[in-house]
């Protein structure tokens, strides 16, 4: 199963980006193999509807879970509609590698 984690940078040492729509990078994690791939969020500098565009990317990537710091109303309704689980982490300053470890149970 694939999961997206919003990240501040393009490797696992980056921290979790607390914003969903305007995060810097999406970390796509394969929960079975533990492999990661980072893609840039093309919506981050959009003047409006960044959340919707970011949700579009998430849906196109076919992931089932998104981990971030918060979700706006439009992004939430779109992700809900396509059955994608949203997770809001309480501790926003976490390193991506630690987030991966905790969700894969390592």
């Amino acid at each position: 199963m694939k999961t997206i984690i919003t990240a501040n940078g393009s490797d696992v040492n980056a921290t979790l980006d607390p914003r969903f729509g305007r995060c810097e990078f999406f970390c796509i994690l394969d929960e079975e193999t533990g492999e990661t791939e980072f893609i840039e969020n093309k919506a981050k500098l959009q003047s409006s509807a960044a959340g919707t565009t970011a949700a579009e990317t998430v849906i196109e990537q076919g992931v089932k879970k998104v981990i971030s710091g918060d979700f706006g109303p439009k992004a939430k309704s779109l992700l809900d509609r396509f059955g994608i689980q949203m997770v809001i982490l309480k501790d926003e300053g976490q390193i991506i590698a630690n987030v991966i470890n905790s969700i894969t149970g390592k």
Partner: peptide, 30 residues
Amino acid sequence: YFDENWFRCNDCENAFTIPNPRIKRICPVC
């Protein structure tokens, strides 16, 4: 706006949604 259907884990205190009844009703983090 209503931000419904958010769950909170009583152990790790993270919040999450369960958008699909097939998803297990457990905390996705811990």
